[in-house]
Design a binder for these strands. Structure first.
Length: 279
DNA sequence: CATATGTCCTGAGAGC
DNA sequence: TGCTCTCAGGACATAT
């Protein structure tokens, strides 16, 4: 579930490793399926060891460690991945461990993933550019309302589904798409090309508001408890959700019951009163 | 080309 | 109690 706010919280939690040297890289042997990694483990290790991390960034839902030879390590949590400095929740799902040093200070930066859908990639500068330009749209915190409209204004897709497309805008996932459309008062099934300029402005403003709010609360830890920040602390935004996973609960704005629908095999939650198609 | 659907994965929870 | 089944949704592959 980690979306932009959770990944940004992870990034902030490990930002302190900037300046550290990578002394060791291990892919612990576990029973579960091995982590998706590129290049091969041995090459990854060889190309990472001895390098210095000069920056800890984020693109969309991925954490980016920039190394001093301009290559970068991309950590992609997908559903259950965590980027940790603290002890991982279980030993059996620890997929990657990097031993770092900064002077005498030693630290372990770990990638833990219960379901194993996440991955780690060491990319050349050209590969990073390709990822940015070919697979991902502008970051959800940086995209302008004009860019958003340019990219989706003529699309026939439903707005909720379109917002999940990382090539359109990077960082929005299933949870925050429902949340932001509620704030924007836009029906999730509304086709993009039918949205008015005002509605695009509301969507854009709501996206920023909801994502920034969620970052302030350090993301959402759902009932399965999986998501934690780098120090193994749960987020707080789950208590602020307006509609997500709240079918039949009262809308915080108008008290009407919240509805659950399915779009592209994913749950969407919305208020049929506040988010009428006609407005 | 744009859009839709299927797939991977594990553990929680439902239902019998 | 203990089994089987369904579901959760990141991103990508394949289909339409």
């Amino acid at each position: 579930m980690p979306e932009l706010p959770e990944v940004e919280t992870m990034r902030r939690g490990v930002a302190c490793v900037a300046g550290s040297l990578i002394d060791r890289v291990e892919f612990p042997r576990i029973k579960a399926r091995p982590i998706g990694v590129s290049p091969s483990r041995e090459r990854f290790r060889r190309r990472a060891i001895g390098k210095r991390i000069i920056d800890v960034g984020r693109i969309g839902k991925r954490v980016v460690l920039t190394l001093d030879d301009e290559s970068s390590i991309i950590l992609e949590p997908r559903m259950t991945g965590l980027v940790l400095l603290a002890d991982p929740p279980t030993a059996e799902h620890l997929r990657l461990r990097m031993s770092l040093s900064a002077g005498r200070k030693r630290r372990e930066l770990m990638f833990w993933d219960r379901r194993g859908l996440g991955s780690a990639h060491l990319l050349s500068p050209a590969q990073l550019v390709a990822l940015r330009e070919e697979k991902l749209g502008p970051d959800a915190l940086a995209i302008s309302v004009e860019q958003l409209r340019e990219r989706l204004g003529k699309s026939r897709r439903e707005i909720k589904v379109a917002l999940l497309d990382q090539a359109v805008v990077a960082g929005v996932g299933n949870l925050y798409a429902s949340e932001l459309l509620h704030v924007a008062r836009v029906h999730p099934r509304r086709r993009c090309y039918l949205l008015s300029k005002t509605q695009w402005e509301r969507i854009h403003a709501a996206m920023l508001k909801v994502l920034e709010e969620a970052i302030r609360y350090e993301g959402s830890t759902l009932s399965d408890g999986t998501y934690r920040n780098a120090l193994n602390k749960a987020g707080g935004y789950q208590n602020e959700h307006r509609v997500y996973d709240k079918a039949d609960a009262a809308c915080p704005t108008c008290q009407s019951p919240i509805t659950r629908i399915v779009q592209a095999q994913r749950s969407t939650f919305f208020c049929p009163n506040c988010q009428r198609k006609s407005r």
